[in-house]
Design a protein around this nucleic acid. Structure first.
Length: 596
DNA sequence: GCAGGATTGTCGTTGTCCAC
DNA sequence: GTGGACAACGACAATCCTGC
């Protein structure tokens, strides 16, 4: 049986995950599907390829002025996906020998840069992102990650009385396996030595300024060495120790043997050997945990474990005594108790709970005109706009509903349509069901600052008196803080918005308004359909944020070129964002109605 | 993917009490 | 005054949820 790198890594993450991969691929795929969310994959592959290309460019510029991709045709094949190594093996079975041979030839010829080298040693298979010839005429290994870290700052450990940064376990397993396989192959065939191992990932401290500076964008982080690591990737020379002792050869061999044995077990044998407890993967199957059960998120595991053993799953079936298990003096117990009480009350009386006085107290602090606003952002690994960094969430669209005390509503919105030309166009949207009578839609052709100034101009006259209402304020507030840091001349204004922001989600997250229709969540995904069923996203050209981000990304990276199509897409996006801020207003209205 | 916030869990330090 | 036992506290990592 082939043991691929991805199987090896999966086994480290969770043994049963690896078992499923071999013995029940559908369960495995299901788990991966749940992990990755619906349409995430689709967009991500493209973004990931872009990172790979940039690293390619980087290696080429930095180390070699000639390049050769020995596996050109593999590169843009859809099978390149990391998780599908096994599929590659089976579908390329005939090519396996050929590609191994080509790798060998490329190495013998001392090809400076080798993309996607294949190695097989004793049924252990791995593909290497890049092999790079170094000054000693040996090969270095480079593993590309479309991430901003491989050592999480939180996981540092004490060794030799010093603090050292530790490589994430998954990456440790990843690189150890590769090192093992390649070294063995090199040894066996009498090829050169595998010398250094690197992770290439993105520097999220890098801020793009005019042209993309690849050298600053990509971090080459050496592993399996003892020297210091640069922590701050600027002029600062702050350094600290690193701790990445890789897995030992003999240990890898043993693990591989163990994997081979374990994968051949039947499911019941496997489960006996590795009994399930409250592990990560059992909870995956409960991702949509029904909120009427004891597994709901508000209930802590200690209690749940006890009830689970009593087979008391449904909250309705709990007797007083069992509910009292939650009746302790700390806050969790109180929350759990409150949730169960609320649930049982609503369920038996077919009603919902509205703490009227408390909601009134919360909402009374708001000042007119109420500004319901919402940002749409895009976030990509390789920054494309000036003054932005990798994965930064860049505001490219916003929608604002300004509600005056007399009931008048005005709507403002804009969208970043192009990153040059420096002009602002107003756009008239036809067939808009949600029109409020005072529309003000703009297409902005310019850079990041232009859109921020446009927002300021829309709000300027009300900044001192008005309250701003968002859903989940950490998000919008963080965006505003970033703007304040980036552009000092706009900082007062954007910080002022933060000061006067109220998070409408609070009403629901504090359970001041509790309904079974919210399915135990306070996300707008559940609250909106329950309170304002007529405002639906179905039938819209842009039904969810993933599609929105995808389209926005395409427009701004000039992937959508023809003008007509682009205008249509921009309109769709405006309507989507429009609905978001309108949704908040409608919920607010609904809550007020209930208060009467 | 990334990031912030709220909460929980863990660990080490500090404070208090009491017996000697 | 000293040392052990235990509570109280605080710092920080881990986890979950939310947004895009």
């Amino acid at each position: 049986m082939f043991i691929t790198k991805s199987l090896y890594v999966d086994y480290h993450e969770h043994k049963k995950l690896a078992w499923w991969k071999i013995n029940d691929i559908w369960v495995y795929k299901f788990i991966k599907w749940i992990e990755d969310e619906d349409e995430w994959e689709d967009m991500n592959v493209k973004l990931w390829q872009r990172v790979e290309d940039v690293v390619w460019e980087y290696l080429y510029k930095k180390f070699w002025n000639e390049r050769l991709n020995v596996f050109e045709e593999v590169k843009f094949n859809e099978c390149v996906d990391e998780e599908q190594e096994d599929i590659i093996i089976s579908s390329y079975k005939n090519d396996l020998e050929t590609n191994l041979k080509r790798t060998e030839e490329a190495i013998l010829k001392r090809t400076p840069l080798i993309y996607q080298a294949w190695f097989l040693y004793n049924w252990l298979f791995c593909r290497v992102d890049y092999l790079k010839l170094n000054a000693n005429w040996n090969y270095d290994l480079i593993e590309v990650k479309a991430k901003t870290w491989v050592r999480k700052d939180r996981t540092y450990k004490k060794i030799s009385n010093k603090w050292a940064w530790k490589l994430e376990d998954v990456y440790l397993a990843d690189i150890s396996f590769q090192k093992h396989v390649i070294s063995k192959v090199f040894e066996e065939k009498g090829l050169w030595v595998l010398e250094n191992k690197y992770f290439a990932y993105l520097n999220n401290k890098y801020i793009k300024d005019w042209a993309l500076n690849i050298e600053k964008l990509i971090i080459l982080d050496q592993v399996d060495c003892t020297n210091e690591i640069l922590l701050i990737w600027e002029d600062d020379d702050k350094k600290e120790d690193r701790d990445d002792s890789l897995q030992h050869y003999s240990w890898i061999e043993e693990t591989v043997k163990l994997i081979d044995d374990d994968m051949r077990l039947s499911e019941s044998e496997f489960n006996t050997k590795y009994p399930f407890s409250w592990s990560k993967y059992i909870t995956y199957f409960w991702k949509d945990k029904p909120f009427w059960t004891i597994y709901w998120k508000w209930l802590t595991h200690n209690y749940v474990g006890q009830l689970h053993h009593l087979w008391k799953i449904d909250l309705m079936n709990l007797c007083d005594e069992e509910i009292c298990m939650f009746n302790r003096n700390d806050w969790t117990a109180w929350a759990a108790r409150k949730f169960i009480d609320n649930y049982i009350y609503c369920k038996t009386k077919w009603t919902c709970i509205v703490e009227k006085s408390e909601i009134r107290w919360e909402l009374n602090i708001l000042n007119f005109p109420l500004c319901f606003y919402d940002y749409e952002t895009i976030s990509v690994p390789i920054p494309f706009l000036d003054k932005t960094s990798p994965y930064q969430k860049v505001v490219v669209q916003y929608s604002l509903h300004k509600v005056y005390e007399n009931g008048d509503i005005k709507h403002f919105s804009w969208i970043l349509a192009w990153t040059w030309k420096n002009k602002i166009e107003t756009i008239d949207i036809k067939w808009n069901n949600n029109a409020v009578g005072h529309e003000n839609e703009k297409l902005i052709f310019g850079d990041y600052k232009d859109v921020l100034i446009a927002l300021r101009d829309d709000i300027w006259e009300d900044i001192d008196r008005s309250s701003f209402i968002v859903w989940h304020k950490p998000f919008e507030n963080t965006r505003n803080k970033e703007v304040a840091e980036m552009f000092p001349d706009l900082s007062d204004f954007y910080l002022k918005i933060n000061e006067n922001t109220y998070d409408l989600k609070d009403v629901f997250s504090k359970w001041l308004y509790f309904s079974l229709d919210f399915k135990g969540s306070c996300s707008i995904k559940y609250v909106l359909p329950a309170l304002v069923p007529e405002l639906s996203y179905s039938g819209m050209n842009v039904p969810n944020w993933l599609v929105a981000m995808n389209v926005l990304n395409k427009i701004i990276t000039w992937e959508i070129k023809e003008e007509d199509n682009k205008l249509q897409k921009l309109t769709d996006l405006l309507l989507y964002c429009w609905q978001d801020s309108l949704a908040m207003y409608k919920i607010y209205e609904k809550v007020n109605e209930v208060l009467k």
